[in-house]
Amino acid sequence: MSAKGDLRVRRVYEPPEPGDGARVLVDRLWPRGLSKADARLTEWCKDVAPSTELRRWFRHEEPRFDAFAERYREELAREAVQPLLEGLRERAAQGPLTLLTATKDVSVSHVNVLVEVLQEGF
């Protein structure tokens, strides 16, 4: 495990792997067509996901990603979110933590911003 914890990002629709460790869904909405049993989650941490308003504005349009990331970081800086972020950091420090999302294109996803924010806190 690195000093910054063992953080991984995967799509929630991918089958679980032995190395996933704790599996935490970080989307505000439940993934379509996926049963809770099939997801095999450790936790659903929807309150670290972007707000509904921000998600709707972004629409996963790549040209908006930089502005989205900045706005999302502002949401993550809110005092109410800090205990949730600390809980995720603690999980990552204890072993692998896989952050799960239903997003089709993970490269322009909130999960990457969330990983950066979590790593900054180590």
Rank of each mutant, 00 (worst) to 15 (best):
M1V: 14
S2V: 02
L7K: 00
R8Y: 11
V9Y: 06
R10A: 06
P16N: 06
P16G: 05
P16S: 04
P18Y: 04
G19H: 10
G19C: 10
D20V: 04
D20H: 01
G21C: 05
L25E: 02
L29D: 08
L29W: 05
L29A: 04
W30L: 04
P31A: 10
G33N: 03
S35M: 04
D38E: 15
R40S: 07
L41N: 05
W44Y: 06
K46C: 02
D47N: 14
V48Y: 02
P50F: 12
P50I: 15
E53D: 13
E53A: 14
L54W: 02
R55D: 09
R56T: 14
R56V: 11
R56N: 14
R59P: 01
H60R: 00
E61M: 09
E61R: 15
A67D: 12
A69D: 01
E70F: 09
E70T: 15
R71G: 11
R71Q: 15
R73Y: 01
R73C: 03
E75F: 07
A77E: 10
E79D: 15
A80D: 14
V81I: 09
Q82P: 03
Q82Y: 05
L84Q: 11
L85D: 10
E86S: 13
E86N: 11
L88T: 01
R91W: 00
R91A: 08
R91N: 03
A93P: 00
A93L: 03
G95Y: 07
G95W: 05
G95N: 11
P96K: 05
L97Q: 09
L97S: 09
T98S: 13
L99W: 03
T101H: 08
T103S: 12
K104F: 09
V106D: 13
S107Y: 10
V108N: 12
V108M: 13
S109T: 13
S109H: 06
S109N: 07
V111D: 10
N112Q: 14
N112P: 02
V113G: 08
V113L: 07
V113D: 03
V115L: 05
V115M: 12
V115R: 08
V117W: 00
L118E: 00
E120P: 03
